[in-house]
Design a protein around this nucleic acid. Sequence first.
DNA 1: CTGTGTGAATCCATTCACAGCT
DNA 2: AGCTGTGAATGGATTCACACAG
Lengths: 230, 230
Amino acid sequence: MFRGTLARRAWEEAAIPLDIPEVVIERLPVYLRVLDRLQRNGHSVISSQDLGEELGVTPAQIRKDLSYFGRFGKQGRGYSIQRLIGELRQILGLERRWSMALVGAGQLGRAIASYRGFGPQGFDLAAIFDASPAVVGTTVAGHTVEHVDSMEDRLRERPVEIGIVAVPAEHAQAVIDQLVGAGVHAILNYAPRAVQVPGHVRVRQIDPAAALQSMTYYLKSEEPALRAPR
Amino acid sequence: MFRGTLARRAWEEAAIPLDIPEVVIERLPVYLRVLDRLQRNGHSVISSQDLGEELGVTPAQIRKDLSYFGRFGKQGRGYSIQRLIGELRQILGLERRWSMALVGAGQLGRAIASYRGFGPQGFDLAAIFDASPAVVGTTVAGHTVEHVDSMEDRLRERPVEIGIVAVPAEHAQAVIDQLVGAGVHAILNYAPRAVQVPGHVRVRQIDPAAALQSMTYYLKSEEPALRAPR
DNA sequence: CTGTGTGAATCCATTCACAGCT
DNA sequence: AGCTGTGAATGGATTCACACAG
């Protein structure tokens, strides 16, 4: 949703896939997380049935999702967890590391810069930019904050694959335009703002307040019944 | 996705709605954000056409989404922005404020506690819990951190509607079970872990690393062509 | 027997297209 | 003349159900 239809590039890698639904791709990282945990807990095979129960997803959905990419299971047994982890990492492009530029070194940006969840999953922060003279030049999470005006030059010298946007909403679109201009094709946007990008650029929105607001819809009809049942 | 089918409560409020698709509910906060901005910029009416362009969504989708809840537009003119903001806030239950308990006062938890995006959208932090003796008793964002073992009692005395989970993945399920036990029906989960909840509880996942991993799928097929086109 | 892989069937969401209001 | 509201049509995604492999 909120993503223009886009002419996907024809497939060039060896493999087979053709035109996989985006929802499927979005589920794969979640499958991967569960499999990692099961492996750490000593499991070595799992059926789509059991995996589905872990995830709250139907077994058929898991089998169908995986079948887009190959035949990884063994009938009568299930899936080798080790094998499946390897396949998913391959599919998602996680056999390599990816580098990111963070724009915005305010309170939110600094929290993102020191978030420990990216590194272990294969993502490295390579540069931090901000527009405020007060923070440019300071050190954040081991990086010297550079001025956002030097961003396009800087990224042309040493490119990154991913941009993280943590600037105030009113500047988000301009910053994203600059990132796209510098050749970035994937953006993680923490600004609470719908942004427009060319069709070949992917955006994922991180918007906790919007997530809360979609839950209050359901809370508002439940609460009265619980509180004043007479 | 990743949410069990659940028997929704029958509608009791006045209004009309019946069984609205969850995707529709998730879009409403985004519509609201754009409308707020347009209003601040001095606009007073907008057509589904123009609103759709702001959002990267078809006009028909916006009209259909809104039509689940009523007839808010004027033919030939469009929608009154002020009116529509009011209706959406009503629908989403944003005419009141909601209170939240945060579990986990580590690096991530502290960042969440001082995140400035919740208050203006109607969400107040009411309590913070942690399990580590090193942080229990300290002050975080104006709240004294309480021990997680006292959480259920504490929340029975002074309930909250929403729980925010920012504990290590291996403790997330246990913490969520406790929150649910204490009567919380909505959870914002920052732990990178699929969790199980009873059907009447809503969970929204905030998982930036998973968001990145679903974008690398597309990057991995684009990059080689850009870098080594010969 | 157990559990995958997959065409077919079903279910759900999006888009179309136009009648009708302003 | 312009734009909403909405049944009908289309397009996708999920689930079913079973042939087949181990």
